[in-house]
């Protein structure tokens, strides 16, 4: 990286020693800024935020509540307008929401009147309009199977437990085959046992699909277990990237191997030190 310059305009190439290579950057946040106007003047949530996320990378974002993590994520999703700077996916600036950036929300956000299968199909139908009905339902069923819901295709979302609903949320996000997966504290509302189960399910599917993922979490252990890099954000206002920690555990990982790894507590201490200062 030291000799390479990444085109900050977001081109899909990288120039190294005068030669152009395809860029490895999937998601590029450049000088990102978010301002909320208030009666007392502008409130700057994010300022000069720069972050590049590589293809097939899993990044977790950690920081204090209210620092603007969710704001940043919803800006990437296109659900929240950008006040300054830009966001590019494979060099194309983000202009609004779209299925190339799948989102797993904090609340499962399933349509309660639809069955688990219908909820996943809602996205699949939209993204693969030319596939046959059978192909589309096969895709949906495959991912529901992957999240361990093969017996609950026809259950109404409202009849599923919170954890099961979030499993459907995971299946729905992967089934539309996005370029980037955005996860906004998806397990924050679950008990620790269910959370562990869902982390395992998420990482198992991710190992197979390797979709670039950005996940917000409050949980230091979750951040380390899932990520290639943990991004630490400073507290707001004018939050930016405070520090980045590379997690060098090989994949696929198991919870046990991670916990027993010598570096685990070093990483953990690093993160906790950051959060406490």
């Amino acid at each position: 990286m030291s000799t390479a310059t990444i085109n900050t305009k977001g081109a899909d190439t990288i120039t190294e020693n005068g030669i152009q290579y395809p860029s490895k950057v999937m998601l590029d946040l450049h000088n990102l800024k978010k301002v909320y106007p208030t009666p007392k003047g502008d409130y700057v949530v994010l300022e000069d935020l720069n972050l590049q996320i590589m293809k097939e990378e899993f990044v977790t974002i950690i920081g204090h509540s209210g620092c603007g993590k969710t704001t940043m994520l919803s800006m990437i999703a296109g659900l929240n307008p950008i006040s300054g700077g830009n966001i590019a996916v494979l060099g194309n600036p983000v202009k609004g929401p779209g299925p190339d950036r799948g989102v797993i929300f904090q609340a499962p956000s399933l349509m309660p009147w639809m069955t688990a299968l219908e909820n996943v199909m809602l996205g699949v139908n939209q993204v693969f309009p030319h596939a046959s009905k059978k192909e589309r339902s096969d895709i949906a069923k495959y991912y529901l199977h992957k999240v361990g819901l093969e017996g609950s295709f026809d259950k109404k979302a409202i009849a599923l437990s919170q954890g099961m609903q979030q499993r459907v949320g995971i299946a729905r996000a992967f089934a539309i085959k996005p370029k980037v997966l955005l996860l906004d504290e998806p397990f924050g509302m679950l008990d620790s046992l269910t959370r562990g189960e869902l982390q395992d399910i998420l990482i198992e599917i991710w190992n197979k699909e390797k979709i670039t993922a950005v996940m917000i979490t409050h949980d230091v252990d979750e951040a380390i277990f899932l990520a290639d890099r943990v991004v630490m954000m400073t507290s707001g206002p004018r939050a930016k990237i405070g520090d980045i920690l590379n997690i060098d555990f090989e994949r696929p990982r198991t919870r046990k191997s991670v916990l027993e790894h010598n570096d685990y507590y070093t990483y953990r201490k690093h993160l906790i030190d950051f959060l406490e200062h």
Binding site: G78, L79, P99, A107, G123
Partner: peptide, 10 residues
């Protein structure tokens, strides 16, 4: 949330 899902799925 439902509206956001609809937006993300376009």
């Amino acid at each position: 949330d439902y509206i956001n899902v609809a937006k993300v799925l376009k």
